[in-house]
Design a protein around this nucleic acid. Sequence first.
DNA 1: CCTAATGCTTGATGATGTCAACTATTGAGG
DNA 2: CCTCAATAGTTGACATCATCAAGCATTAGG
Lengths: 141, 141
Amino acid sequence: MCAKPKDPQVCEAWQLLVRFSFAQRSSLPALAAELELSPAQCHLLNLLEPGRPVPMGQLAGALSCDASNVTGLVDRLESRGLIQRSPSEQDRRVKVLSLTPLGVRLRSALLERMTAPPASLQRLSADEQRSLVKLLRRLIE
Amino acid sequence: MCAKPKDPQVCEAWQLLVRFSFAQRSSLPALAAELELSPAQCHLLNLLEPGRPVPMGQLAGALSCDASNVTGLVDRLESRGLIQRSPSEQDRRVKVLSLTPLGVRLRSALLERMTAPPASLQRLSADEQRSLVKLLRRLIE
DNA sequence: CCTAATGCTTGATGATGTCAACTATTGAGG
DNA sequence: CCTCAATAGTTGACATCATCAAGCATTAGG
């Protein structure tokens, strides 16, 4: 199944992670819909931390998408009063995004739902959970 | 960060997994584009194993989306000669999908790319990789 | 039979995403 | 200073993704 003559264990671990994220791909839309959000909007809100404004272009980089796409995404979130465009003082071309108080509340509601661990995680023992955390940390960086 | 008075370790593990799948959400489109596929098409091809035809409705269930969405996805993949609709013999309402030889080749090219493990995975020792595989297996089922 | 339920398609609509063209601003040289 | 290229964001055109409601054919139960 793994093409190159690499360690098959590495491949299997990676395949499981990929499978996991495909599963997420199925479940996120329903979860997001409860808050009237789309998956893309969730991703954006997830990246926008309270008290840490971000220029639009930087967000496009983090989302790995075109800048014009961010424009539309931000238009919709701003029209709902969740985020806010402000001109940068250093560079008048730049607009920085920040969460409104309403956005902060919605974001934390979102994170609360997204990070509610499923039953399968509870089946792991405390030691196993600790190992998993360690491994994933090193994986992501 | 975790709302309920639950084990914070469970929450952290889950958060890392969620973070991982958001990272995938960013990288999959580019990877898929190399094969002229969209993320949704990847998901569908991923579910459609060679030699194991699947009714359209079942696929809609697996993708957690509306049946009419599958119609469009299948239209595009079929017009490229990657998959094939065939009438079911047991039930003439049902159409089963199967990969064409071209589809089989593209699917394996796709899986090969998707499952090419990133460098960060190689940094784990053999033992650590083994643990990770075990933990993830129990997580997914 | 008649009727309800099922599987898929169609059409309308909105969101996501890309690209190319445009405006405004910045910054580097001449 | 003055041009001129690069950058940040917007706009418009277009394809895809995704939902819903309506419709058709088939199936299954009463």
